[in-house]
Nucleic acid binder design. Structure first.
Length: 423
RNA sequence: GGAGAGGUGGCAGAGCGGCUGAAUGCGCCACAUUGCUAAUGUGGUGUCCCUUCACGGGGACCCCGGGUUCGAAUCCCGGCCUCUCCGCCA
């Protein structure tokens, strides 16, 4: 959410920002509502002020005068009620619109309509050239009995899967390696709920707008399954005022992620690339409201993930996501795309976002600075390792002619020292 | 699932329907005092909105949302959460 005062004083900036993101945003209507809302609130404040004074007079009056005085107040009461009903309507529409205003993308965000316009910043590693016919992760998985897509679908519908044996162990190895690496960098490991209240989805910016992408409980429970641990981690301190001395806060969580993938029929239907459920280690940073520091964190969390990919010997590229491909909440986003031989291309495996105070405002996540002032925090997040897509990259990039998978050095520790799967 | 208790400021903990944004204690900040520290004294110490160049002024908030009333932290209804006992259970 943007600061209403900011919209008031920089309407053109907000409009230009929305345009860059290719999003609708009726700034004029917001300004209109804001104006009438403030008028209505002032009128109400005056009425209430009168009411308070009159109330005091009644309290001090002699008992026999009270009934008469109270009678005189009835008009005030109805006037106030009418006034507040009108104001509530205005405010409801204003809030509705405010929740949909996108954050203003950074200068460095490239112009563009969709992911085709994302700008490649750098590449690391050379995609391997194979002297045998390359197998997809599905072929490798099925030849060893590691991957069972048929039974996954039988259990839970399409885009579900079962991992068995060494592939299951490899998944745990990657996740644990990712978690340990982040803890080694000073991050605090956290286990969080993956089923959260609707309010938390709104607070992190997924709702309104993303309802179709989230699994929700029925009306008995106001709960949604999260698509990423970003949601509970970022919202961990919602409605609190943190001590500035405790910032920055660096958090990492390994969790299950659930995605409906609505509107993706026919897209990436094969294998583990686009699935409804996976495991992910996610990093989140919460810090003071300082754009310079946010940018530093953004580069740092991007680098954390690049180090993991390098250690796992997986070629990747980093792209600067263009305006049209940015979400409502992000100020800037860098995606890391890892080489996947079966796709003969790079596939998105990581997404590093910075929000400034966009999420914090919705979450009412604040801190008290050294000067004693209360401000909204800045938040950021990035993938450390998402299980299924990392498994695709590991299996396909490190496959041998016989269909075995070479285990990169950092993971061997977690796989009983084995260098090849199956051993 | 059954039966109770409760949700008040950073924490603890009062609060008759009007004089309560809220006693008191602790914590915290400032000043004073004191070889240092500790102790003591005095004052201050929530968030948000509107308004004002400023000083200031007005309003909201005692879990959330409704209601009763001239007036609600205080009464009524619904929700959420916490705790205790019983049952069930990974």
């Amino acid at each position: 959410m943007l600061d209403l005062k900011f919209i008031r004083s920089h309407p053109e900036l907000v409009k230009a920002g929305a345009a860059k993101k290719r999003m609708e945003c009726d700034v004029e209507r917001i300004l209109e509502l804001d104006e009438s809302n403030r008028q209505a609130m002032q009128a109400m404040d005056e009425l209430r002020s009168k009411q308070k004074q009159a109330g005091k007079a009644i309290a001090e009056a002699a008992p026999e005068e009270r009934a008469q005085l109270a009678q005189n107040q009835k008009g005030l009461k109805t006037e106030l009620k009418e006034c507040s009903e009108g104001q509530a309507l205005i405010e409801a529409e204003l809030n509705e619109l405010m929740l949909r205003v996108p954050s203003v993308p950074a200068e460095e965000v490239p112009e563009g309509v969709d992911d085709g316009d994302n700008v490649e910043l750098r590449k690391w590693g050379e995609p391997r050239s194979f002297d045998f016919s390359v197998r997809s992760h599905i072929e490798i998985g099925e030849m060893h009995g590691w991957l069972d897509i048929v039974r996954g679908a039988r259990l839970a519908g399409s885009r579900n899967y079962v991992l068995k044996g060494d592939l299951c162990l490899l998944e745990h190895a990657v996740l644990r390696y990712a978690l340990d690496t982040m803890v080694g960098k000073g991050y605090t490991a956290v286990t969080v709920p993956t089923l959260v209240r609707t309010q938390t989805m709104v607070g992190t910016g997924y709702f309104p707008g993303g309802e179709d992408q989230a699994y929700r409980c029925d009306e008995r429970d106001d709960l949604c399954l999260v698509g990423t641990a970003e949601v509970p981690l970022t919202a961990l301190y919602q409605d609190e005022i943190l001590d500035g001395a405790d910032l920055p806060m660096r958090l990492v969580s390994s969790s299950t992620c659930y995605r409906r993938e609505a509107g993706t029929y026919g897209k990436d239907t094969k294998g583990l690339y686009r699935v409804h459920q996976f495991q992910k280690v996610e990093q989140v940073v919460i810090d003071v409201a300082d754009e310079g520091r946010s940018i530093e964190h953004h580069l740092a969390i991007l680098d954390n993930s690049e180090q993991i990919l390098q250690a796992l010997e997986l070629p990747y590229r980093v792209v600067n996501v263009c305006g049209g491909d940015l979400g409502q909440a992000q100020v800037q986003k860098f995606d890391i795309e890892t080489w996947m031989p079966s796709r003969e291309g790079y596939g998105e495996t990581h997404s590093a976002s910075r929000f400034y105070d966009f999420q914090s405002r919705r979450l009412s996540l604040r801190y008290r600075g050294e000067d004693g002032k209360v401000r909204h925090c800045h938040t950021l997040n990035n993938t450390v390792a998402a299980s299924t897509r990392m498994l695709i990259a590991l299996m396909e990039n490190h496959q041998t002619a016989s269909g075995q998978v070479r285990v990169p050095e950092p993971l061997q520790l977690y796989l009983g020292g084995r260098e090849l799967l199956p051993a």
